[in-house]
Amino acid sequence: MHPPPVRAMHWINAVAIFIMIGSGWKIYNDDVILGFLHVPDFLTIGKWAQHGLQWHFFGMWIFVLNGLAYLSYGIASGRFRHKLFPISPRELLKTIGDALRFRLAHDDLTHYNAVQKIMYLGVMAVGVLIVISGLSLWKPVQFSELADLFGNFQTIRVVHFLCMAAIVAFILVHVTLALLVPRSLVAMLTGGPVVSPDGGPAAGAKARAAG
């Protein structure tokens, strides 16, 4: 269900996100947005703020290049279209209801429920927004057209910060659920259940990737 490029890009992204969040917290601590919120030093990457910046501007290359490869692959192979769409409002309500009653079905890993589809699409949108806001923070003059979309400089910082918070929230849910259903974690390492040839277009995508 997860062709090799998807698995490789997933784990590269995990490393990139680790670097970006750890170093981002170091940079954040230098001039906090929320007066009461300082990130404990042991959770940050880099000895001083400038080292946090060094890591951040190294990690950005991995995150952006890997992210572009992932989005291009997901769109070109049809993986996004087949795995994340359609999302029916009725299925969404049913999934939420099942989740609240702890009756969420996960016997078929290859099929994402409506909440999963929305979470994955949502985190991808946040990923795009964190890059756009990051570019605006890095180059508010050279990319002033981009920075103008947000208003003033501090607004861009807040947007970048909220995107980080959303990604951290996603990771907490994502990792918790992966640990609760260990087969899903194994699937991201080994590829998971083979999608049968009559399993629809997703199988075709896999075959193309393998070929």
Binding site: F42, T44, K47
Partner: peptide, 8 residues
């Protein structure tokens, strides 16, 4: 601590 130590 490696996050901070390894940097330098």
């Amino acid at each position: 601590l490696s996050g901070c130590d390894v940097t330098e």
